[in-house]
Design a protein around this nucleic acid. Structure first.
Lengths: 339, 339
DNA sequence: CGGAGAGGTGCAATCGATTGCATATTAATT
DNA sequence: AATTAATATGCAATCGATTGCACCTCTCCG
């Protein structure tokens, strides 16, 4: 063993005048090695401060013991909750979690995914960026049979495991709730319609209107990227309509908040004059005033499920694909309660 | 090349009837290989869909190309911002970021750090847990000369790179601000005093009192773990004192919020009757009402700096240690402005 | 007493990329 | 023409752990 380098199984073998194979087997508790030998070997390993070289082991086993996770933005409560859930399960199962963010840019996402591919992650958990159009970078994983799990933002045309929430039911429930509260003109701020999540929320909205015999008015639906500014612009536009809405179902909490602030500044009362509901249950939605009604999405659980699913795929080579739809929960708060 | 396995440099070599060494050098743009050969090799590599095996390369180079990051809780705005900053810099520099959370538990932190050590991360970025007492697990990294960078919560007795914010100045500024606003009895909710961050915030508070000739009253300082419930309990206690405070400098925004809600429910007006200031500038602090005055900590920048620092250590073997103190910024909002 | 069988170890190849030290080829110099 | 220098490439060992196959030893039984 060289001076400042780590001890290896060969050093242990030399010490005991046995072969490296025996050492390797002993350390892995292979039954072919006698108990006595195992004990001797483990004792020497400990005294030498031996630590297995995962890199070598990974190379030999063609397995990196690593799960990749790609999110649009790490620094967003919902996503960091999912990451937290993934880490929770993965760590216990002995996997490392490598993380990267696309910043909602297609180009960066492609770059990241290729990098994870090159680094041979054993599986990839991803929520795609808003910009995406082509998905060749993800099909790579399919071709090579590397487990791929979508969460929240999934790609319909790729058949693989998916953990999503019931966005349709969420959109439906929000709308029904607003109707129940007596709102008549319900607008909707929708996100990019290439993402199923936003499309389904809108579909739920439309369906609820239909079920209640309320005519669907296309001009009350605005599609944008749901930033804070988008919310303001959209509400400004809506309120300038000849027949402005008395309730707005916002595609996320960010726009719900900015819309609310805009309206408040205009002297419009919430929920009396206009009702507001968001989506995602961001931490702030509970503490602003009025507090924002919203749909809770179980981020941490999604992460846990995603990790469990991908680990089972990695380890069992289970061929069947599952789409797990987690339930959403409507949280009624002040912004939409005028009962 | 076996059927369903990846092409290797040997496959490329065989194809061109040259040696694997030449292929390796060509792909790494080694000047010893002629341009013509390089081009041929790269063409074949592309046509075969070759991707370098990082595992093999890592083994040979004794480098994992991976930076580990350990935080108390992924799912906390400040920490996820730091992670985001680390990822930002690390990805551009060609490093993977593996992530893990201690949940503020010493035992889990030790476990994680050992695991990162065994997996041979090239460097470790960490903000220690609240519970920590011993630091042998971190000294391991020092012994083996693996770069270690602390951020936010550093360990004084370990000499290494540190990125912290000026908590002392932050505490001082908050207190001075409250004094300037005319508050007389200023209490402080402090976090665990084994963490420098919280200790320094308190010290800044004490110093500001001194500078303004206000006697320091020990009974106005309460130490706890700064959860939402801790905040309520602490304020409840403070307000029951014979001479209750008219301002509270809270160790974080969470307690500031819970304190504020508690006081509001008791009919105490903020900021008129009691002024409140938090710490960390959580996203919600800006949007609650009254909005919470607080200290902004540049999380994303801290992450970037930490990554830059650790990468320079990994690549240059620079021996000198730096402690970078990032400035904090007092953000005055409604909760403490009674001018 | 000889052979079968079980139990315990070792040999050597393998995973794929890298690199120090040749070697081969061509060009330049005297 | 012969030597030197420069250019281009190959050989084989190496990184450390794993594993199929072979081998040895000992016990047990007919």
């Amino acid at each position: 063993m060289n001076k400042n380098s780590e001890p290896t199984i060969h050093d242990i073998a030399r010490e005991l005048k046995i072969s490296a194979s025996t050492v390797s087997r002993a350390l892995n508790d292979n039954p072919r090695i006698s108990l006595k030998t195992k004990e001797k070997i483990k004792a020497v390993a400990a005294s030498l401060g031996y630590r297995p070289n995962t890199l070598a082991s990974n190379l030999r086993n063609k397995k990196s013991n690593t799960i990749g996770i790609v999110v649009p933005l790490i620094n967003r409560h919902f996503f960091s909750s999912v990451i937290s859930g993934v880490e929770d399960v993965a760590f216990k199962a002995g996997y490392n979690v490598v993380i990267s963010q696309s910043n909602d840019l297609a180009a960066k996402e492609i770059n990241i995914v290729h990098s994870m591919f090159a680094n041979r992650v054993d599986g990839l958990i991803i929520s795609i960026s808003m910009e995406n159009e082509s998905f060749d970078h993800l099909k790579l994983f399919q071709k090579k049979n590397i487990p791929l799990v979508f969460f929240d933002r999934a790609v319909p045309e790729i058949e693989t495991d998916k953990i999503i929430v019931d966005d349709f039911a969420g959109g439906f429930r929000v709308t029904q709730h607003l109707i129940d509260q007596g709102y008549k003109q319900i607008a909707h701020l929708a996100g990019p319609q290439n993402l199923m999540t936003y499309l389904q929320r809108k579909n739920g909205y439309i369906d609820a209107l239909k079920k209640n015999n309320i005519p669907f008015d296309e001009s009350l639906v605005l599609v944008n990227t749901l930033t804070s500014d988008d919310g303001i612009a959209a509400v400004e536009h809506l309120m300038s309509l000849p027949n402005p809405p008395d309730a707005i179902f916002c595609g996320n909490d960010t726009t719900a908040l900015s819309a609310m602030i805009y309206l408040r500044d205009k002297g419009i009362r919430i929920p009396q004059d206009v009702g507001i509901v968001g989506f995602s249950n961001e931490p702030f939605s509970k503490v602003v005033s009025p507090s924002i009604s919203t749909i809770a999405q179980p981020g941490f659980e999604m992460g846990q499920k995603a990790a469990e699913l991908i680990i089972s795929k990695i380890e069992n080579k289970d061929k069947s694909f599952h789409t797990i739809v987690l339930p959403t929960e409507l949280i009624v708060r002040e912004s939409s309660k005028r009962g």
